[in-house]
Amino acid sequence: MANESQNFDNILEIKELQTSFFTEDVEIKAVDGVTFDLPKGKTVGIVGESGSGKSITSLSILRLIDRPGKIVGGEIIFKGENLLDKSNEEMRKIRGNQISMIFQEPMTSLNPTYTIGQQIGEAYKIHEGLNKAEARKKSIDMLKLVGIPSPEKRIDQYPHELSGGMRQRVMIAIALACNPDLLIADEPTTALDVTIQAQILELIKELQEKLDMSVLLITHDLGVVAETCDYVAVMYCGKIVEYTDVKTLFSNPQHPYTVGLINSLPSHEEDIEGDLPIIKGMVPNPTNLPSGCRFAPRCPYATELCNTLPELVTDDNNHQTRCWIYTDEWNGSTEVKTYAERNS
């Protein structure tokens, strides 16, 4: 590849990505114009609730969208090249090699009929053309790397013989086998217990440094975001509503949705008197989204203006927010109760 040696500030740049699902007569815009950058060596989190389009965004990057879904627009620039221009065969060579992915359900993400060793070894066979013995040796090394005890024994076991945490370690071993530049982790710890989650997040962090990877972390868990990410994109109904560095997101959230989300999270670290602050209503039906700001029907500050879709506005600190409140046109209330204020 011509660009192999070139240095990029951003390993990944997503521009106006649009992925839709086509049912009988409606188009569901699961990802609707998503734009963000992933700086090299960093971890970017995409956080959102179900239906926000965060998982579809991640699957779109690897072009793993199945019918009736389709990427309908935008660009996915990986190391300077648009993945959407690649042939299927070129794309296949990138998957599991330069970009890898791990999924939410370690229980179901491994093939039950093959041993751990066969499944890790497959990656080496596909991308590095190694033979059985070489692949096995490297697979054992990989199992060691992800902290699986007695890898020589584990390698011949089947997935059902391993615990959930162990299986997720195996998934990580498969993903990292070919030393990818980018790891996409789609809710990697959601199905795991919290003590195991802590182990896995620690492992990903450690390997990221060791292998010089960039990570895109998809999660619904704000705590996980706070602990692992450098930058965060908050998604709601297929659109990014806020993008900033992780510190700013929690110290100074701007979008009313982000604020509401942080507030409604019951904390294990402090007592909240009385009711939890809530976001009223529920996520709108994806076939019938509001035409203006997607969050307007649930937003406590919404005005007439919100019937028009706001753009992502970037402030001086590169804090991007898709909300009219942060524009000059705004004339309504400016009191967005932040998390910090709630506690003061």
Binding site: L64, I94, S100, S109, N111, Y114, E122, A175
Partner: peptide
């Protein structure tokens, strides 16, 4: 539709391999 088929694709396996090795056996 299973997750492990998606895993196989994400690994970069050829479609033929995905169907005959990963899917068919199950």
């Amino acid at each position: 539709d299973q997750d492990y088929i998606r895993t196989a694709r994400a690994k970069g396996a050829k479609e033929r391999v995905v169907i005959y090795r990963h899917a068919l056996k199950n």
